[in-house]
Design a protein around this nucleic acid. Structure first.
Lengths: 255, 255
DNA sequence: CTCCTGATTATGTATAGACAAATAACGGGC
DNA sequence: GCCCGTTATTTGTCTATACATAATCAGGAG
């Protein structure tokens, strides 16, 4: 290998558009395995030493790829121990707003949730319209209410696509609310949030314990894994008891 | 220098906590100059060659710092030309939601805004309370309304601190609404957003052309530049005509 | 004057080697 | 068995060098 010219490695594969730089390709390879779930959170990824041999390159090149993944928050590195797939980021900007347990803990008030309905069925036209996803696929539908202290904090109407998350079918969600459960188990590649304000109708007012017509925050979130929908949720909060807070800095990290 | 051990450079300054790694320090130094406005958008930062001499290190070390800044979107690099301070990011997650002109353009409807009040004064106790910033400093207070087509889209109540943005005192904001004006001129280091839902009182209902008690989205944003407040704004939107949309992907980039 | 070409220059990628720092694992002393 | 210091391993940082790539610029041909 000592005679091998530098820029000539990995000979140009006849493949389509691949990342041109080797460190980029290594990074993409690993990222793909993490996002696809092949390497779950906590999994130890190969040592720099091993990757270096696997790709036939210098350690600096591998290191560069892993540093990028570290910066992106996808892996965590520990000297002497190795590099590990990071726990799915829970606090990415708007993400944090559904972590009721954490919010309650900050205030020193007890948090709990109740599952009010749970069913497995194909996504019908009404549900598809409601959540903005295609109809037909098998999905778990959950109706859930969150409490902080003795006041309702939110009503949650959620769909979990069983194609993407088959193990959700076995889960009761009595111990862990569906949001946290998904957050800690399922990596996502894209998420979309919509925030609206609505006046509570009779049912919502009753469920949230507020006056009819009271202003409510509605958060709709849809999450994809490589263009396949994972989950869609509509969370309704009493407007006078809940606010969404986001911190930003130019580096992109949440505060 | 050939005999100089590697890790011993820059001898430990008696300073307080500084970034430990040199590439980290270079990155932080440059970031600071960009965010503080010393190097405005478009400014060419020193060549790797120059920085390398300035810090007495190898090019790889400088390159690493600049690569990080590129990944963060703070600089843009062009071969043969050099590295330049990037234009302020305009679409960072929630940031986009106030760009009425863009929103209107998407829909093909005309956008306009009106300045309903404009005054310069020291921040009094009531305003300090209202916006959550310290009282005392000289500030420009703006009351503004945004229209999309012939419907009111939002009411804006804003404070611009003249210590941080002195040139705002000379600006009428008739051509460019204050949000866009600030976004394109003033870099920020930290921003905080709060989103709430409220029932419109009589004044707000009148200004937005909605029924009294109608649900409204309220966005409060505060922006700092190195711990000094830059601007604070409260935007109120009709809940049935406005929604906040955010796209996220794991790499942290907005979609 | 225009178009093409080649030189120049700054960034992009990669190497091989070296030392530093942290820490998991091992082994000995009690 | 438990505590503690030593060792080995892995990541973190940096160097000095090399060649690749892209874009600008100057010069020459038409």
């Amino acid at each position: 290998m000592t005679d091998m010219p530098f820029g000539t490695k990995a000979g140009k594969l006849p493949d389509a558009a691949r990342p041109t730089a080797l460190h980029e390709r290594i990074r993409a390879d690993i990222e793909e395995r993490i996002l696809s779930g092949v390497w779950p959170p906590g999994h130890r990824i190969p040592f720099e030493h091993e990757l270096m041999e696997q790709y036939g390159c210098a350690r600096m090149t591998v290191n560069r790829a892993l540093s990028a993944l570290t910066a992106a928050g996808l892996i965590v590195r520990r000297r002497r121990a190795g590099s590990f797939v990071a726990a799915p980021r829970s606090e990415r900007a708007l993400m944090e707003i559904q972590d009721f347990a954490a919010e309650a803990a900050r205030d020193g008030r007890p948090y709990r949730h109740e599952i009010r309905a749970r069913s497995v069925a194909a996504v019908d036209v009404a549900a598809a319209e409601h959540f903005g996803i295609p109809a037909g696929a098998q999905a778990l539908r959950l109706d859930c209410r969150h409490w902080i202290g003795d006041l309702p904090a939110a009503v949650e109407d959620r769909l979990i696509l069983l194609d993407a998350v088959p193990q959700a079918g076995e889960e009761s969600f009595v111990e862990t609310p569906p949001g946290s459960w998904l957050l800690s188990r399922v990596p996502w590649t894209r998420a979309e949030h919509v925030i609206r304000a609505v006046n509570a109708d009779a049912a919502l007012a009753r469920d949230l314990g507020i006056a009819r017509g009271g202003a409510c925050l509605v958060l709709e979130r849809r999450t994809w894994q490589a263009d396949a929908p994972v989950t869609a949720v509509r969370l309704s909060y009493p407007g006078d008891r809940h606010r969404f807070v986001g911190h930003f800095s130019p580096s992109g990290k949440a505060g």
